[in-house]
Design a protein around this nucleic acid. Structure first.
Length: 241
RNA sequence: UCCUACCA
């Protein structure tokens, strides 16, 4: 079964839903009982193709097989719904799962992500508070999502203070966190700030990635700082080798 | 063996 699960997941990641599905049928034919992992991988594949209907059917099928969807399954569906912009469906699902199982950090992170992308930053922060009260410690994902949200809303100061807060509570920022902040500064045309962060991340154990360079390169070009842009490219080359 | 975040 584990072998099958791994394969199904691999197909799913390639967007080969059809193959994944065939494999699923095949394992049933061979008297292999698909477990949570199998269902989950398949679910993800379906959600990737925006096939919410099929995904729901699958969940129903597994319930009939006597499997109770676990948190992880819920989480997958949540993020799937969120990506499709079905915010209220996602919220309803959350309420439902709250009654049957314990949400994880991932659950909250998905929700926060969904809401800030839907322009409901206020709601995102409410969830943030709620998860802390529920005894869930926000992690890097949580903070990065929120910072991205603030940054998109032009709330740079807020974003930056959140960035400080997370370090105070002992949560180390990673590349994504830095990138989000840098993105904010770039949009505001604050090259100096952005570059300061960039240096900071090189000094911590946080190697800048492609996205980091994209942001920085972009601003420098916009500001006509060709010199610095080419320096940046040199740095990127060195970092990549 | 399963779930979540940053540009295009």
């Amino acid at each position: 079964v584990i072998t099958y699960n791994t394969l199904v997941k691999a197909y799913g990641n390639e967007g080969k839903v059809k193959e994944a599905w065939d494999l699923f049928l095949e394992m049933k034919r061979n008297d292999c009982v698909p477990d949570m992992y199998t269902y989950n991988s398949l679910l993800q594949a379906l959600l990737k193709t925006e096939n919410v209907k099929e995904a729901c059917n699958l969940v129903r099928e597994m319930q009939q097989m006597g499997h109770t969807p676990n948190v992880i399954i819920y989480n997958s569906i949540l993020s799937g719904l969120g990506k499709l912009g079905h915010i209220d469906a996602a919220w309803k699902l959350f309420e439902e799962m709250r009654t049957s199982c314990k949400p994880t950090v991932c659950t909250y992170n998905c929700l926060i992500d969904i809401f800030h992308k839907g322009g409901q930053l206020g709601v995102a922060f409410k969830i943030f508070e709620e998860m802390k009260q529920a005894g869930c410690t926000p992690d890097v994902y949580t903070y990065s999502s929120l910072i991205t949200g603030l940054q998109k809303a032009g709330q740079l100061d807020e974003a930056h203070s959140l960035f400080r807060d997370m370090q105070v509570v002992g949560c180390l920022p990673n590349v994504v966190t830095y990138n989000s902040l840098i993105h904010g500064y770039c949009k505001a045309g604050k090259i100096e700030e952005a570059q300061k962060l960039f240096q900071e991340m090189s000094q911590s154990n946080c190697p800048p990635n492609q996205i980091t360079y994209n942001y920085l390169f972009d601003v420098l070009m916009k500001e006509g700082q060709l010199e610095r842009a080419s320096e940046l490219l040199k740095g990127a080359w060195k970092g990549a080798t």
